[in-house]
Design a protein around this nucleic acid. Structure first.
Length: 767
RNA sequence: GGACUCGUAGCUCAGCGGUAGAGCGCUGCAUUCACAUUGCAGAUGUCAGAGGUUCAAAUCCUCUCGAGUCCACCA
């Protein structure tokens, strides 16, 4: 054996062997006790891993621990299509090539992104392997796999049929130049100085930066406690405007800050996010004055046809002439949203989209945690969970991107014409004249046909064949929310469970009990045992999985939630691509070895806390690997010096019966205690304790004291005890440092008579 | 603006009611011995600050200051 351990020589070779032998497949285990399952949070298929993904080592520790304990263990990998993010990255690439998404048809664009992702996905998977993750690759899934898509469609259909999915008009950030809406993520916020106009509304004066939207005002709001305006609350005022006299209602709402401006706010539901919400609270009508083409519409009277900026100027001039402007604050700064692409000001505009009613779904999700059907570790995150669910709003699941699962909903053009004769519904990107005067109430789903993916032949209510599919795709999180049951269900032949024959009403989708046997993985591993992920996606992902999982299957999707913290750069700053401080975990694996990287991540940081990446710590853990190596080297050397010295794979009890020397007996007892401590720590997700104890014990107890002691009195019996105890320590350490422990085990284990790999060895039990 | 997390040895962090802990670093010594990616010995802290609860507080409560994250995006 070499003097130092060289991880590069062994890691990849070892992983390849593990995989070929099928150790990570649950069906290959002997003596299965309980079913144990973890679904890997699917990394973005498009991007290489970042450091956060290395934290999934926690899942590997759990998987390996339970596998060794004899549980039938499944750790299932997958990849997420990450709809908007991936399309965003791809469009950047197009941009670099001097192209844009508008140069391609929907189908072309989708195909191109699919190819792009296809090239990147193996990179990500290879990285997970380099980290030693004991994932069952035979079961890997992608969120756009056809069988997953089928399940997602089915869930949506169920939500629709049971009245949880509805169509409604909500505001979106719309770029009138690019003709598309953007999600909140892609809005670029910028500080800008704009005039703040103080304009007269009858007896009131209010401040606004957007006087041109005044034609869309459907109320004026003040704070309920504002003494100045008490007498107006609930009254209807007659006011003078540039388009003549009109009437407007005064409401009281908490959204108004009496300190700002005059303490009076105009409410323009169609063109301001806050106003929109206020209008919902007060059941105010919505009046659109700006079209999807960026021009004022007919509600703006003589200003119709003007672009927003022109109109603002023209209106201000006229108001000034009429004496309707009290003053102008020229130095007002505020933040406005810009299009990331063309840097134009985004226009909040009302667009019809699909929503999910969340409150009834959130209730059982809250209950599940309250009752302890789901446990969250560390416990303090429960608070965040409840906070989110108790204040939940309906979920907009429509996304105007191509890269994703297309919503299986068709609009009957004929029914819509009957319902809304004047404004023929067309793609709003082309036609601005829709829904100008719609009330705020939820839309009915009339005129829509929702299926499980297949195109309907005709409209069930009018029989028309003129059906147009919703161009939108689902929010990525809508599919990820179904990940635990979707991945497990889709392991079986999915044709068993498709659409038409399926239980239409009543029972929980997707399957009736008698069919359950067809879905073996689902039956065995759902609900999964642990969902382990970063706390930053507790609400985005974990909470939604609970809600949708409970809804779709009638069961919690997992029994335990384990949340890890973030890994920051060596200066303690969050790693981000834009800051350019991202550390590739693979670089560190190359330099220090996967085991050292893994151990570094769990050593010394309590679960759920952030940590700062430390090269010193990595070095220390690499040294620890070397220590392990040299203990093995000592054992190996003695053996070559005296062929009577033997190692045997014995249990602690058997060892006890064999020990002769008093000191050896003591050390057996010490390790016996250690086994129980480490097992206890792992059962309680106290990975840092376990790692610290193993490090301290192996190095400063076992090597520094015990080996030094045995060295001077070595004989066949003491050698047997010493080396067998070392095997036990390797087993305890294996979930944390799988490569080096396996390599040493292979070198020592040949004589020991154990399993062919540590991966499938039995976890030491304490006497 | 709202919420959450964190401020403990030079650095990175455990501890979270009972007279302060680890790793790294530092100081001194040792070393043909499995390992210098080593061993032995040692120094180092009014546990951010101020109040309060308690027989007892780094640990519980309140406030202040500082660092960070998430959410919202005030006319």
């Amino acid at each position: 054996m070499d003097k130092t351990y060289n991880h590069k020589d062994v890691e990849q070779k070892i992983y390849k062997n593990w995989e070929e032998k099928g150790y990570f497949r649950p069906e290959n285990r002997f003596g299965n006790k309980e079913n144990y399952s973890i679904i890997l949070p699917p990394p973005n298929a498009n991007a290489p891993l970042h450091f956060g993904h290395a934290m999934y080592v926690i899942e590997d520790i759990l998987a390996r621990y339970h596998r060794m304990k004899g549980d039938k263990t499944l750790w299932l990998p997958g990849a997420d299509h990450a709809g908007f993010e991936t399309q965003f990255v791809f469009e950047k690439k197009l941009q670099d090539e001097g192209k844009s998404r508008f140069d391609f048809s929907r189908e072309e664009l989708y195909r191109m992104i699919l190819d792009f992702v296809g090239q990147n996905r193996p990179v990500m998977e290879g990285q997970l392997k380099r980290l030693g993750f004991s994932l069952d690759w035979s079961r890997k899934k992608f969120t756009l796999d056809s069988d997953i898509v089928k399940i997602v469609h089915k869930t949506f259909k169920k939500l629709y049929d049971e009245g949880f999915a509805y169509r409604a008009q909500r505001l979106v950030n719309y770029c009138t130049f690019d003709g598309t809406s953007f999600s909140d993520l892609e809005v670029v916020w910028q500080e800008k100085k704009d005039p703040l106009y103080y304009i007269k509304y009858g007896p009131l004066v209010l401040a606004t930066t957007r006087p041109e939207t005044k034609f869309g005002d459907t109320a004026v709001a003040v704070h309920a406690g504002d003494k100045r305006y008490q007498k107006y609350i609930g009254k209807e005022l007659e006011i003078e405007t540039v388009l003549g006299k009109t009437k407007i209602k005064v409401i009281a709402d908490k959204m108004v800050d009496p300190e700002f401006g005059t303490g009076v706010v105009k409410i323009t539901p169609a063109h301001d996010f806050d106003d929109f919400e206020t209008a919902q609270r007060h059941n105010l009508p919505m009046k659109q004055v700006i079209g999807f083409d960026g021009k004022m519409n007919e509600n703006a009277g003589k200003f119709a046809g003007m672009y927003v900026k022109q109109a603002r100027k023209a209106i201000i001039e006229e108001m000034q002439q009429k004496g309707l402007i009290e003053k102008v604050d020229e130095n007002y700064t505020h933040r406005i949203g810009l299009c990331y692409k063309c840097k134009n000001v985004l226009e909040p505009l009302p667009l019809e989209q699909w929503f999910i009613k969340m409150e009834p779904l959130a209730k059982p999700a809250i209950e599940a945690v309250r009752k302890g059907n789901i446990k969250i570790f560390p416990k303090n995150f429960e608070k965040l969970y409840f906070q989110f669910l108790e204040g939940i709003r309906d979920w907009n699941i429509s996304r105007q991107v191509v890269w994703g699962i297309r919503i299986p909903a068709w609009r009957c053009m004929k029914c819509n014409e009957i319902k809304n004769p004047k404004s023929k519904i067309k793609n709003p990107n082309k036609n601005s004249k829709i829904n100008n005067n719609l009330a705020m109430e939820q839309f009915s789903n009339e005129g829509w046909v929702v299926t499980e993916g297949e195109k309907p032949e005709k409209c069930p209510s009018c029989g028309s064949g003129e059906l147009e599919q919703d161009p939108d795709t689902f929010d990525t999180w809508f599919s990820s929310a179904q990940w635990p049951f979707a991945t497990l269900l889709s392991q079986s032949s999915i044709s068993n469970f498709s659409s038409k024959g399926g239980s239409a009403s009543g029972g929980q989708f997707p399957i009736s009990n008698e069919n359950a046997r067809m879905f073996k993985d689902y039956a065995e591993f759902y609900p999964t045992t642990v969902m382990e992920t970063g706390y930053d996606i507790l609400r985005w992902w974990v909470a939604r999985m609970v809600m949708i999982g409970l809804y779709a299957t009638g069961k919690v999707p997992f029994k335990n939630v384990v949340l890890h913290g973030l890994v920051n750069d060596p200066l303690g700053k969050k790693m981000s691509k834009s800051k350019g401080n991202v550390v590739n975990p693979l670089e560190l694996v190359d330099k220090y070895g996967a085991d050292a990287v893994r151990f570094t991540l769990v050593y010394g940081t309590a679960l759920g806390n952030d940590q700062t990446l430390s090269f010193e710590k990595l070095e220390a853990m690499r040294n620890f690997s070397n220590k392990l190596w040299n203990i093995a080297r000592f054992i190996d050397l003695k053996r070559t010096q005296n062929s009577n010295l033997k190692t045997k794979n014995l249990t602690i009890e058997q060892l006890s019966n064999n020990a002769i020397h008093k000191n050896d007996k003591e050390w057996i007892e010490k390790i016996n205690l250690l086994v129980s401590e480490i097992s206890g720590n792992l059962d309680k997700y106290q990975f840092n304790y376990a790692a610290e104890k193993l490090y301290e014990f192996i190095w400063h107890q076992f090597a520094d004291i015990y080996i030094e002691d045995v060295k001077n009195r070595i004989d066949e019996n003491s050698y047997l005890i010493l080396t067998t105890l070392y095997l036990i320590l390797l087993k305890l350490l294996h979930p944390f440092m799988p490569f080096i422990t396996e390599e040493i085990y292979q070198r020592l284990g040949a004589q020991a008579g154990g399993e062919e790999s540590l991966t499938i060895e039995k976890w030491p039990s304490f006497a």
